[in-house]
Amino acid sequence: MAEIFTFPIGRSSQTAGASRAASIEDDRRMTVPSNVLRSVESVRAMRQRAGVIYREIPVPLTLSDYGIGVQIDVNNGSTVHSGGWIMVLYSEQPRTEWRSRWRCVAYGSVRISGSEHNGLTPPMMWDWLERTITGINEETLGGTVSLNRNTSFGSLSDPAGDPPRFDCELRVSWTPLEEKEGWVDAGTQVDVWARFLESLTTNDELEEPISDRE
């Protein structure tokens, strides 16, 4: 049975309604590995970014033995909107495909207008992701990027004749670097994904051709 830890209070699903201090003590009394508890507390202690909204989400029990799920929405006043989620997963038995007991799974989406599109392509987005993400085993990073053009018709069309909008979606997973005691700085992993989603709303570098950014 996986334990789902809420964010940012840190209560497990078995201690809903308890105070923050009491929930931490309850977590310690549960049969949760110490490296998982330490990883959870790194999320509790992480700095939250201004203009970013964080919310705990459940982790499917089939994915891992323990998990931390955080939804992230960027609301910094930009006309470009981005959001997504990240799950930090832990398996009591090492997974060959993860090369670890730990794995991060993340989803991100950015919506931009046609006038802001400027030749955005999946390779350009992936290149930007690789430049932004840190604290990982780089050989384990993999995922997909989808770019969809959305044009409204009929009653949903804009009478002002605005250009079509584009949705760029990323589905990514990677293995985070472990500390010596076998825990991971899950708070940093959450922040890395928040930073990436935040960067998509100010995509000055994404507007440049990849060859010009070296």
Rank of each mutant, 00 (worst) to 15 (best):
residue 192 V to C: 06
residue 16 A to D: 03
residue 53 I to T: 15
residue 126 W to H: 10
residue 13 S to R: 00
residue 210 I to R: 15
residue 74 V to Y: 10
residue 172 V to I: 15
residue 23 S to V: 01
residue 23 S to I: 02
residue 178 E to Y: 00
residue 206 L to T: 01
residue 201 T to R: 04
residue 44 R to K: 15
residue 90 Y to V: 07
residue 3 E to F: 13
residue 111 R to A: 09
residue 36 V to E: 13
residue 176 P to R: 04
residue 83 G to N: 13
residue 211 S to D: 14
residue 19 S to K: 05
residue 165 R to G: 09
residue 190 V to K: 05
residue 97 E to Y: 03
residue 99 R to A: 07
residue 106 A to S: 13
residue 111 R to Q: 11
residue 181 E to Y: 02
residue 152 S to T: 14
residue 51 G to Q: 09
residue 147 L to Y: 09
residue 169 E to Y: 08
residue 43 V to Y: 07
residue 19 S to F: 03
residue 43 V to R: 05
residue 108 G to I: 04
residue 61 L to E: 08
residue 4 I to S: 06
residue 184 V to P: 14
residue 71 Q to F: 05
residue 166 F to E: 10
residue 75 N to Y: 07
residue 61 L to A: 11
residue 75 N to I: 12
residue 211 S to W: 09
residue 28 R to P: 03
residue 72 I to K: 03
residue 174 W to C: 04
residue 71 Q to Y: 05
residue 135 G to P: 06
residue 124 M to H: 15
residue 15 T to D: 09
residue 58 P to G: 00
residue 98 W to T: 13
residue 197 L to T: 04
residue 22 A to N: 06
residue 112 I to D: 08
residue 193 W to E: 11
residue 37 L to S: 04
residue 193 W to D: 13
residue 79 T to A: 12
residue 28 R to K: 11
residue 118 N to K: 09
residue 37 L to F: 13
residue 173 S to W: 11
residue 186 A to L: 04
residue 212 D to H: 14
residue 111 R to H: 13
residue 124 M to S: 15
residue 106 A to G: 12
residue 20 R to Y: 15
residue 112 I to A: 05
residue 48 Q to V: 07
residue 156 L to S: 10
residue 33 P to A: 00
residue 77 G to I: 14
residue 156 L to E: 12
residue 74 V to M: 03
residue 37 L to T: 11
residue 117 H to W: 08
residue 68 I to K: 03
residue 38 R to Q: 14
residue 207 E to Y: 09
residue 202 T to K: 11
residue 29 R to W: 11
residue 192 V to R: 05
residue 56 E to K: 01
residue 155 S to L: 02
residue 210 I to C: 14
residue 32 V to D: 07
residue 10 G to V: 00
residue 15 T to L: 07
residue 47 R to A: 09
residue 208 E to M: 12
residue 101 R to S: 10
residue 122 P to F: 10
residue 181 E to H: 05
residue 148 N to T: 10
residue 123 P to Y: 10
residue 94 P to H: 01
residue 142 G to C: 09
residue 11 R to L: 04
residue 33 P to N: 01
residue 56 E to F: 08
residue 172 V to F: 07
residue 193 W to K: 06
residue 191 D to A: 14
residue 51 G to D: 02
residue 44 R to Q: 12
